[in-house]
Simulated assay, not measured.
Amino acid sequence: MQHPVRRSLLALVLALPFAAASAEPRIFDAHLHYRPAVAEHFGISDVARTLASNEVRGAIVMSPEDNLIRRLKAGTDTRIVPFLEVSQRLGKKMDWMHVEDLGERIARMLDDSEVKWHGLGEFHILADDRFGPGLEQLLDLAVARDLTIMIHGDPAVIDHAYATHPEVRILWAHAGSYAYPPLVQDYLERHPRMNMDLSMRNPRINPEGQIDDDWFELFLTHPDRFMIGVDTFTATRWAQYTRLKDETRAWLAQLPEDVARAIAFENGERLFPAQ
Rank of each mutant, 00 (worst) to 15 (best):
R190A: 15
A142V: 06
N206M: 08
E24L: 09
L9F: 05
Q88E: 10
A253E: 11
D146R: 13
G103W: 01
Q137V: 11
L218N: 10
P36R: 09
Y34F: 15
P155Q: 02
E266P: 00
A21F: 02
I151E: 03
P133Q: 09
L126H: 15
H191T: 11
V47L: 03
L244C: 10
G134V: 12
D224I: 06
N54T: 07
R249T: 09
R190I: 15
G132M: 12
Q254V: 03
I44M: 06
V230H: 12
L147S: 04
G209V: 14
D95Q: 14
P17H: 00
A52Q: 06
P82A: 10
L120F: 03
D213S: 06
R6F: 14
A163D: 13
W96L: 12
I27C: 05
S8K: 15
R261T: 08
D140H: 00
H191Q: 10
V143R: 13
H152T: 03
A144W: 04
H33C: 01
A235Y: 01
I44A: 04
R261V: 04
D101T: 08
M200R: 08
P192V: 12
G132A: 11
S22F: 04
I149S: 04
L188S: 13
L218D: 09
R105L: 06
R261N: 01
A127G: 13
V143E: 15
L9C: 10
H124D: 11
R130C: 07
I211M: 12
G209I: 09
H165M: 05
F83K: 01
E85N: 10
G176M: 07
E167H: 08
T78R: 07
I170P: 07
M94F: 09
D246I: 02
E104W: 07
L84Q: 04
S87C: 13
A274I: 06
A175D: 06
A15C: 03
N54C: 09
D140P: 00
S177Y: 11
D213E: 07
V115D: 03
I158G: 08
S113N: 05
T148H: 06
L10I: 02
R49V: 00
A175I: 13
F42G: 00
V47H: 02
Y241M: 03
A161K: 11
A142F: 09
